[in-house]
């Protein structure tokens, strides 16, 4: 890690707390919340891709499960949305454990293709089960109800402001958990098996089990991110589980620096903001995005944060 855990968390907390001072309008709270949600999903990928070295091109599938758990469970099972978030986490974790066991034996792009298949499968189910999910048109999501609770307690906040703080706090918790993991026996074992699976197993690391743990943990991160997205938008379509979304979060992780939580968050900030900035060139938005990616990969192959950190170290 670049610096100690608490420094990173403190910087993150101060940024989350201070950014609203710079917001010219309420609209920016929404973008902020979106950044935090993306950053949460990307943090999960840092654990799986950055540390354990296992690729997933279908992680949005888990975001889809989290999102639709929040859409379906309150409506059909009468569950409170908060319970629905937990249900989404449990389903995502269970499914990740189930499919992870066979597919994590695969390596490199074979694993990429298998996870890709999983993501597509989830999207197809969400698109085709119209009776339940409303198909490609999507469905509305019940309110979380916390804002109303706050109002009864005499605190009035707008939807944008509420979700900004809610997602910010969840991201902080997610980052705290991930940073704890990094320097623990589990985190070290994940990084070790990334370095050399043979060497890892000769020091007693149960490689398949550890990979599965990383897959399940990162699936739960994606699931919570999907839930938060669904709840704050109040509406959800199968796109949340789609291929493009999977690629988006992998790209954020790689852009920022897939080995570090702070890097991942930086990647989420940039790739969430860029389309907002580029709306001026709406037609060329995808073109610019693609060009940025290519340039970063050529000139800063380890991602923004590690490359910048290395450069600072060289010239003290």
């Amino acid at each position: 890690m670049l610096t100690s855990k608490w420094v990173q968390l403190a910087v993150l907390a101060v940024l989350i707390a201070a950014l609203p001072l710079l917001f010219p309008s309420g609209y920016y709270y929404r973008i902020g919340a979106l950044i935090f949600v993306n950053a949460l999903a990307v943090t999960g990928l840092v654990i799986l891709v950055g540390w354990a070295g296992q690729i997933s091109l279908g992680h949005a599938g888990f975001a889809g499960i989290g999102a639709y758990a929040c859409a379906l469970a309150p409506e059909h099972l009468g569950l409170h949305p908060v319970v629905a978030i937990v249900l989404g986490m449990v389903i995502s974790a269970g499914l990740a454990a189930l499919i992870g066991k066979p597919i994590l034996r695969l390596k490199g792009y074979y694993l990429g293709v298998a996870t890709l298949g999983f993501g597509i499968l989830v999207t197809m189910v969400l698109t085709n089960e119209r009776i339940w999910t409303g198909g490609p048109d999507g469905m509305s999501v019940a309110k979380l109800g916390l804002r109303e609770l706050l109002r009864d307690m005499g605190v009035r906040v707008s939807g944008g402001v509420f979700w900004y703080w809610a997602c910010g706090i969840v991201l902080l918790i997610g980052a705290w958990l991930a940073l704890n993991l990094y320097n623990s026996a589990t985190g070290r074992a994940l990084r070790a098996l990334h370095g050399s699976e043979v060497a890892a197993s000769t020091i007693g690391i149960d490689v398949p089990r550890l990979k599965l743990q990383a897959f399940v943990i990162s699936a739960v991160y994606a699931s919570v991110a999907g839930s938060l997205l669904a709840l704050q938008n109040g509406f959800i379509t199968p796109d949340v589980a789609g291929f493009m979304h999977s690629i988006e979060i992998v790209t954020m992780a790689v852009l920022g620096g897939v080995g570090s939580v702070v890097g991942a968050i930086l990647g989420a900030v940039i790739l969430t903001l860029l389309p907002q900035v580029l709306t001026v060139f709406a037609e060329y938005e995808q073109l610019v995005l693609g060009a940025v990616m290519i340039l970063v990969m050529i000139f800063l192959p380890r991602g923004l944060l590690p490359s910048i950190a290395a450069r600072l170290k060289r010239k003290p």
């Binding site: 070290r188 074992a189 990084r191 990334h194 370095g195 050399s196 043979v198 060497a199 020091i203 080995g259």
Partner: peptide
């Protein structure tokens, strides 16, 4: 078969996986 990207201490610590893991 060293874990090249990890620190020297982390490499040595990895050897303690069995006694450290919970």
């Amino acid at each position: 078969q060293i874990f090249q990207d990890m620190s020297v201490l982390d490499n040595a610590l990895a050897g303690f996986h069995l006694s450290e893991r919970g």
